[in-house]
């Protein structure tokens, strides 16, 4: 059966910011983890930094439309998503998501899994095999495409996770801790891939590795206790640190300084 599109779906959707949040509050279980967050990001690679418990994963889940905001406004790819009856399917078709806890079906091969996610994202059936092949090749798993997921190492699984996230060539790509388990060589290749993806996609990478952010991101967002406490370029982040701040690089010292300041302000 051929599905026809409604007038609303056929209407062109344009946006300046792929993600636009104002006063966003999101609960993780019963705990309010995102507490009035304002964020506007467009095309580019954006690093999301913050200490444990800062609300990064809850924010990523809200942006993936998995969690519903308690209050505030959230617009993704030009569509408001906080209201009942929002066009979540349209947003989800244009989004790629790698969760922090990347669950997978162990008996699937890499190719089967990526093709399954392509189907979940309602890609046209004819485009799926080629799109899956391309996504798998981009993460360097072409030679293991027919290996079962349970036979892969942690780093390879993470790469398979990135492949499923990019299979639909998303406009908004959300990667939660994508470099966990990658060896140094793979991390370098991944940074290259991120820069490549960021040329025409809004990529938000949640990580605790400042060096990854500096190497591949055009923009850094620092969150603390569920709010954005700082946003700027990696160069500006490096300028924030002083010699007394802990860290092995200027950017790490800058990040430490921002977190210390946020803690002081939260305590006050």
């Amino acid at each position: 059966m051929v599905r026809s599109l409604s007038e609303t779906e056929l209407k062109p959707v344009t946006w300046e910011y792929a993600v636009q949040a104002k006063g966003l509050r999101v609960k993780a279980g019963r705990h309010l983890a995102v507490t009035g967050l304002d964020l506007s990001i467009g095309v580019g690679v954006h690093g999301l930094l913050g200490p444990n418990g800062a609300g990064k994963t809850t924010l990523m889940r809200a942006l993936a439309t998995v969690l519903s905001p308690e209050s505030g406004t959230l617009e993704l790819l030009g569509r408001p998503v906080q209201e009942r009856g929002a066009d979540l399917r349209g947003v989800r078709r244009g989004t790629g998501y790698l969760p922090q806890e990347f669950g997978y079906y162990p008996k699937f091969t890499v190719r089967e899994f990526v093709e399954y996610v392509a189907w979940l994202k309602e890609m046209p059936a004819l485009a799926v095999p080629v799109a899956a092949e391309r996504a798998i090749a981009r993460v360097g798993l072409a030679d293991r495409a027919d290996r079962k997921l349970k036979e892969l190492s942690g780093g390879m699984l993470r790469r398979a996770g990135v492949a499923q996230a990019i299979v639909n060539t998303p406009d908004l790509l959300l990667l939660d801790e994508p470099t966990v388990g990658l060896d140094p060589e793979q991390r370098l290749a991944f940074r290259e891939l991120l820069r490549d993806l960021g040329a025409d996609t809004c990529v938000l990478v949640s990580t605790h590795l400042v060096e990854d952010v500096v190497a591949s991101c055009t923009d850094v967002v620092v969150v603390h206790t569920g709010r954005v406490v700082w946003q700027g370029t990696p160069g500006q982040l490096a300028e924030r640190g002083g010699t007394g701040d802990p860290g092995d690089s200027a950017a790490e010292r800058g990040y430490s300084a921002l977190v210390r300041q946020a803690r002081r302000e939260a305590g006050a």
Binding site: R61, V66, G90, R92, P99, F102, G103, Y104, Y105, L120
Partner: peptide, 14 residues
């Protein structure tokens, strides 16, 4: 019961 529950939930077919 579904290891990939979060991926499924974030998809249009979820």
């Amino acid at each position: 019961d579904d290891p990939a529950w979060e991926l499924v939930a974030a998809s249009p077919q979820g």
